[in-house]
């Protein structure tokens, strides 16, 4: 009898030990996965700073950031045109895309019937899944000639074309996040507003939207992040010439496309190549700033 119970006991112990070992293994796998993400971010940040800073210091930070001429091949490195273009392009996309996106989100969350909403929602999801090179291709073949004809230009590849493409590209993220935020507004708020005699439209604009404002702000920042980091779609429609963004019809080059179009040619180790990394560093800082802003909004949302 005693030996029997001992046997059972040892069996239980082995099972427990095995279970613990598996637990530990799984835990380590989880940790490893988490570590890969953190390590990648750290590696990229450190790498960008190490490879981007020297050129910036050699050229001179003010000359680099505020110089208005870029001719990498011949050693003139001023990236102000790229910075201004990226800012103008992003701003343009936000000005067009945010109202459109937020209104769509309102429609989906508060107005549309279930069937209509389902159709629009799946269309938006599809829009988000289209590869950026396809946006670029369609933009180049359809949008650029259309702009050229509509405004009687010699060439339709310009800032405006890039803004239009970026607007369509940031719509999905704005719509999704804003819709979720609008849906999360407590029903009581809206019911109270309706009970006080406000119309449906008044309720949406005066009650639902203000209540969901931090979520909408998050949506906007997400859109900005997507717009400023895009390269492939706009390299094909923006003209890609290093001009100051003088008007909507100037062919321009963005921070992202400046890196993409010259990285192939800049000889390894040259100041030209290093300065492309410096552009990447500037872009990275912009995106970090946007992320910080995003975190602030999300934090506010939790507290409010």
């Amino acid at each position: 009898m005693a030996s029997e119970s001992k046997k059972v006991q040892s069996k239980v112990q082995t099972a427990r030990r095995l279970r613990d070992a598996v637990e530990l293994l799984v835990k380590n796998i989880f940790f490893l996965c988490g570590f890969v993400a953190v390590a990648s971010v750290l590696f990229i940040s450190v790498y960008l700073v190490i490879s981007g800073l020297p050129a910036m210091l050699e050229i001179g930070v003010t000359d680099f950031l505020l110089g208005d001429t870029w001719d990498g091949k011949n050693g003139v490195y001023g990236i102000l045109p790229f910075i201004l273009t990226s800012l103008a392009g992003t701003a343009g996309a936000v000005v067009l895309g945010v109202p459109m996106g937020v209104l769509t989100a309102m429609f989906l969350a508060k107005v549309a019937g279930n069937r209509v909403a389902a159709v629009i929602r799946s269309a938006v999801a599809l829009l988000a899944g289209i590869p950026s090179v396809v946006y670029g291709l369609v933009g180049m073949v359809v949008l650029v000639p259309a702009i050229q004809k509509a405004f009687h230009l010699s060439s339709g590849a310009c800032l405006l074309a890039a803004i239009v493409v970026l607007t369509v590209m940031i719509l999905p993220s704005i719509i999704n996040v804003a819709e979720t935020a609008l849906r999360a507004v407590p029903k009581e708020y809206e019911e109270a507003s309706l009970a006080l005699g406000a119309t449906h439209t008044e309720t949406i604009f005066r009650v639902s939207l203000p209540a969901a404002r931090s979520g909408v702000a998050t949506a906007i920042v997400l859109g900005v992040g997507r717009a400023i980091g895009e390269a492939m779609a706009i390299i094909m429609v923006s003209g890609n010439v290093a001009n100051m963004p003088g008007s909507l019809f100037t062919p321009v080059r963005f921070l992202t496309t400046a890196i993409a179009s010259e990285m192939n040619y800049a000889t390894v180790g040259s100041l030209w190549r290093q300065s492309l990394f410096s552009i990447a560093l500037v872009l990275f800082l912009f995106i970090m700033l946007i992320n910080v802003a995003l975190n602030v909004f999300i934090k506010n949302k939790k507290e409010g």
Binding site: V144, P145, S155, G156, M236, G239, N240, V241
Partner: peptide
């Protein structure tokens, strides 16, 4: 230049459309 494109195909496409 009005456009600085990054591939031969893109140049041909741009000329075809303009």
């Amino acid at each position: 230049l009005n456009q600085e494109l990054t591939s031969t195909g893109a140049v041909i496409e741009a000329v075809r459309g303009n």
